[in-house]
Design a protein around this nucleic acid. Structure first.
Lengths: 219, 219
DNA sequence: ACCTGAACACCGTTCAAGT
DNA sequence: ACCTGAACACCGTTCAAGT
């Protein structure tokens, strides 16, 4: 009998379709709502509606689940930047600003997911190929933006990769310091987060990246 | 009798001189050796030679101890940068490079202490005035370096504070990405960490910050 | 293959009690 | 004031057992 009922629902697993992804989704949700200190495997299992030991059928341990959550976050980030780049095709300065703004926006809208994504895996990267893949893809995207900006005279000429490292470092540091409240009120109070971002990017650019925006507002 | 023995060792507390600082030191040690995941209040207490409940006489909870460890780390960082600045008095470009190198060095020599220091406190800063104080002091030091560099034509003119935010962001992002293995091998393999730092700083500087160093090597 | 329930070691925190 | 020991709720992980 049991064999027959199994054959009648051939690919339907035990509990519900896709526990692995349900666990990742539950983890992301808890992270957003309760922060990293509230993220426990037992709570994730409870939210997914399974026993506290069930996750071990899909993840070796807690760090493995966190790696999956990080990968999910990095993919979101990549898509956000890629969308920004697509929306400003043919406008390198616009791509630079929009791409960076997407980075800032992701971090501010879901700080804990961002933090886990960019500083949660650390060791044993080789065990998480999907994470490494999206990380490489993202860096390649930054290199692409930098190349277009260099050709348009928006960024200095020179090694694309070195400049990409500088741009990403500048952005990542800016966002991190923002999240950690390390940017003094005297600076933060001077304008919107977006204005502050552009002011910061202007330190590395050869043109005034805020000019287009201000022009648009005036016209 | 008990009153007499207490008067004979008047300022000698119960167990040993200064448990509060002993707990901080124990925490820093565990952090360096076992990483942030190995840092538990119970282990800290054990290492300091007291019961697991004793820390609560000095710290409200675990976050309070972590805040103290962060403050300690930030003070180390401040001293390292201040030393670098002092050693290169009258040489703004040298101060910039040496100050940034001190930052990188602290992060690489004790990654977990660095990470906890710069992204461990987060909430309720107003409850940790010593942390806020050293953070402000550090930012002021960066502003000072920036001012000297602007006067010497090493960094662009403009708002000192905005430029300081950019310099610190660049540095913090660079170090963070380095620690998280987010800088591709194709870039990291091109030279020493110091050479990579200078290449990154050059993206924001008006002069070649590596020139002095290369000149020194040749002469 | 996928999941449950009991079990173990470890953790943060509280509290009555000791000096 | 400073510290101990017992206690509680929660956690990560393992494992025999169930379907």
């Amino acid at each position: 009998v049991s064999r027959l009922s199994r054959e009648s629902r051939p690919r339907q697993p035990y509990h519900h379709g896709d526990l692995k992804n349900a666990l990742i989704a539950a983890g992301v949700e808890i992270l957003s709502k309760e922060g990293v200190s509230g993220l426990s495997l037992r709570k994730v299992a409870l939210r997914a509606g399974v026993s506290h030991a069930a996750p071990y059928a899909h993840f070796a341990d807690k760090p493995a689940l966190i790696a999956a959550i990080s990968t999910e976050g990095f993919e979101r980030l990549y898509r956000a930047i890629a969308d920004a780049v697509a929306k400003h095709a043919g406008d390198p300065a616009g791509q630079l600003v929009a791409g960076c703004w997407a980075y800032v926006n992701f971090a501010l809208s879901d700080p804990d997911h961002f933090k886990v994504t960019l500083s949660g895996v650390v060791e044993k990267e080789e065990e998480h190929p999907a994470f490494v893949a999206v990380s490489k893809k993202s860096f390649a995207l930054v290199v692409e933006i930098v190349r277009a900006c260099q050709a348009a005279g928006v960024l200095r000429p020179g090694s694309e990769e070195s400049t990409a490292v500088a741009v990403w470092s500048l952005m990542h540091g800016f966002v991190s310091l923002l999240l950690e409240n390390q940017i003094p009120r005297s600076v933060r109070g001077r304008g919107s987060t977006r204005a502050l971002l552009i002011e910061t990017l202007n330190q590395i650019a050869l043109v005034d990246l805020g000019a287009a925006e201000r022009g648009r507002r005036k016209s």
